[in-house]
Amino acid sequence: MTLEFILGHLNYWLFIILMMTGFYIVVSRGNYVKKIVGLNIFQVSVFMFYISIGKVQGGTAPIFPVDLNIDPNVVYSNPLPHVLILTAIVVGVATTALGLALVVRIREEYGSIEEDDILEIEQHIQAEENSEHGSAMGGRA
């Protein structure tokens, strides 16, 4: 492992560390709003990873001069990941909105947005249903 290799791959590792921080927020915290914020962090890290693949050392943004007189010595970065991620950002906001609508609906139904509380309520409902079915079967079920 040479210094050159480490410098060349450092960016990827930094994005992965950031991505895993977001992932940890999603799996370890019970609050649904916070889970969605964690998902956003995860998502933005993936975007940064994609964009960093398109970067060319010494390059510039892929925008030509207005008169389209292109200097062949200028290096431009790869525009394709940019297009892909532009689409992904907008779709990401759409999915975030859908997730947040689900959170609002959950709060309306259960009166809480904490995973622990909701699991408890669910268990309670399940137990009640079971005992109801049991008595309907004459206590034999």
Binding site: V44, M48, G54, A61, H82, I85, I89
Partner: peptide, 11 residues
């Protein structure tokens, strides 16, 4: 800094 100015605007 990664040359993706359009993405930066959108973000």
């Amino acid at each position: 800094t990664l040359d993706a100015v359009d993405v930066a605007f959108t973000e």
